[in-house]
């Protein structure tokens, strides 16, 4: 169950790549796990380590000035591709609490909400400007989820928009299953009572050739 997310304050790191797919965020070999924990070391693995597992120089999150970043300012279409939730777990385990981009892959976005990773959509031009600022190092942002604002060091404010349900989930950190069963249990049962037989898989089927 995710912790409530109300305020995120910290350093922003720039990731100047569009179309970052979840294969890049965490390669398939690190999906062979039975736990959510400890995936941060595999984050952006192929960009940070060579084929023999030796560190590559210069990846932004490994540079001294960005090692403690909690906000990632990316580009267009962040998190497209595979549905692997490991991408979100790896980002969070690494210490990232918020990703800013001009658009996100749909499944990645949904997975983020479930885990309390804040995804902020902003106009492409604003994202580019923030990324430019972040690249200089030392850009600290203050994000208020309830107010839907990002406060810049100079006092400037950028507004963003969250869908009401996303905002509620982030602020409350709910156990969704509990809520669904408690508040909607009767509706679920009512559907099950009227569910047509032809929508159900038959138990005994014909053998196939």
């Amino acid at each position: 169950m995710p912790e409530p997310v109300r305020r995120i304050v910290g350093k922003a790191a720039p990731l100047e790549v569009d179309d970052v797919d979840t294969d890049q965020i965490i390669p398939a070999q690190f999906l062979k796990v039975l736990s959510r924990k400890g995936l941060g070391k595999y984050l952006f693995y192929r960009w940070r380590f060579d084929e023999e597992g030796r560190p590559r120089e210069g990846f932004v999150l490994d540079r001294k000035e960005f090692r403690d970043a909690v906000i990632l300012v990316a580009g267009r279409n962040f998190g497209i591709g595979s549905s692997r939730e490991n991408a979100v777990w790896a980002l969070m385990d690494f210490g990232i609490r918020c990703v800013i981009a001009s658009s996100f892959g749909d499944i990645f976005y949904g997975n983020s909400v479930k885990n309390g990773l804040l995804c902020v959509r902003l106009e492409e031009e604003i994202v580019r400007r923030l990324r430019g600022e972040a690249a200089k190092g030392g850009l600290t942002l203050e994000i208020d989820v309830d107010a839907e604002t990002i406060k810049l060091p100079g006092g400037g404010i950028i507004n963003f928009k969250l869908e009401p349900n996303v905002k509620r989930r982030l602020l409350e950190g709910l156990d969704e299953i509990e809520v669904t069963l408690r508040e909607y249990g009767e509706k679920i049962r009512a559907y099950e009572d009227r569910m047509e037989r032809y929508k159900m898989p038959r138990k005994s089927g014909l053998p196939l050739e």
Partner: peptide
């Protein structure tokens, strides 16, 4: 296509 947490929600509800 859904993630693991959504899958857990579907299993349970």
């Amino acid at each position: 296509g859904i993630g693991t947490s959504e899958g857990e929600h579907v299993f349970a509800t």
